[in-house]
């Protein structure tokens, strides 16, 4: 495959995994947790690097899961002891991220890992870091890891689809019929963590938040069906990846920045044009009374 081909494939894998995971982040009202985990996985990556002296897939994934869960647990722990949820998220993630930054600056030195790389990613380098995969030949490491993570995400989402749905919509009912709501919460946090760390190399800690949140938020505006929202969100992620890459080539600018910008454009278009929630349709149908009011008027008369 060509250099451009690998970059587009890698970015599309980021768009797909983040898009799918992002749907549940939005529906569970946990967008802020994505922001938090995308930063704290840095600590996991640095720690894994310090222990193994390698920037390899499995170690990084394990480091990311541990710090992701640590973030979720700490946020919950402070919150249950009277700290407001958003304040708790803000305190926990900045502190863990700061530890990561200090460790990079003092312990890691000149390795591939530096703060700018961690924040912005460097997808342009991805095709050069290859590994040998049986049957497929030489594949960039980051691409292989993303494909593996996407597979895990798809299997976990599909296998427990109804559990994700009910715990997102009505956790109290879910718990009352015996579904392990808390366990699923931490499984989900682990999925967010591995998706983030796999996307990290390609787009970095800040842009991965855009990929997690924005396509899902746009998809939410187009449909009233969860399954369609998942498909749309993944598709928006891929579209943003392609558009972002070509805009970056055209303007000769940061690829990850352009991709995040492209997600913003997709969202803006959705916000203006979507048939159900869009600004335009609201304007066009502003004189139509929604069902709700009719019903209430019926009830009164």
């Amino acid at each position: 495959m060509t250099y451009t081909g690998w970059i587009l494939l890698t970015a599309s894998l980021v768009g797909l995994s983040c898009g799918i995971v992002g749907v549940f982040l939005i529906l569970r009202r946990m967008a802020m947790m994505a922001d938090a985990i995308s930063h704290t996985v840095l600590l996991g990556i640095v720690t894994a690097f310090l222990i193994t002296r390698e920037l390899n897939g499995p170690h990084m994934l394990i480091g990311a899961i541990i710090t992701g869960l640590l973030t979720a647990l700490l946020v919950q722990w402070f919150h249950s002891r009277g700290v407001q949820q958003d304040a708790s998220i803000g305190v926990v993630f900045t502190t863990l991220f700061a530890i990561g930054v200090i460790l990079i600056a003092t312990q890691v030195g000149n390795a591939h890992l530096d703060t700018k790389h961690a924040l912005m990613g460097e997808i342009a380098f991805v095709p050069w870091e290859v590994m040998n995969v049986p049957l497929l030949g030489e594949v960039p490491k980051a691409t292989f890891m993303l494909a593996a993570v996407l597979l895990v995400v798809l299997v976990v989402i599909l296998a427990f689809y109804k559990e994700w749905k009910i715990t997102s919509f009505d956790p109290a009912l879910a718990a009352s019929i015996g579904i392990p709501v808390v366990l699923l919460h931490y499984v989900f946090m682990s999925m967010v963590s591995i998706t983030t760390v796999a996307s990290f190399d390609a787009v970095g800690a800040i842009m991965v938040v855009a990929m997690l949140i924005t396509p899902a938020a746009a998809a939410y505006l187009w449909t009233d069906k969860l399954s369609i929202m998942l498909v749309l969100s993944g598709a928006f992620g891929v579209i943003s990846a392609f558009a972002g890459y070509y805009v970056a080539v055209w303007l000769d600018t940061s690829i990850s920045g352009s991709m995040a910008f492209a997600t913003g454009i997709v969202f803006l278009v959705s916000f203006l044009l979507s048939p159900k929630h869009g600004v335009l349709s609201r304007y066009l149908y502003r004189y139509e009374r929604p069902d709700q009011e009719e019903q209430q008027i019926d009830a009164v008369s």
Partner: peptide
């Protein structure tokens, strides 16, 4: 206690009662 903007329909919500 729930988000009525959740992307699902009435039948689906009722089905949730059977998930257990």
């Amino acid at each position: 206690s729930v988000d009525w903007d959740f992307p699902t329909n009435a039948l689906d919500v009722v089905m949730m009662g059977l998930y257990g």
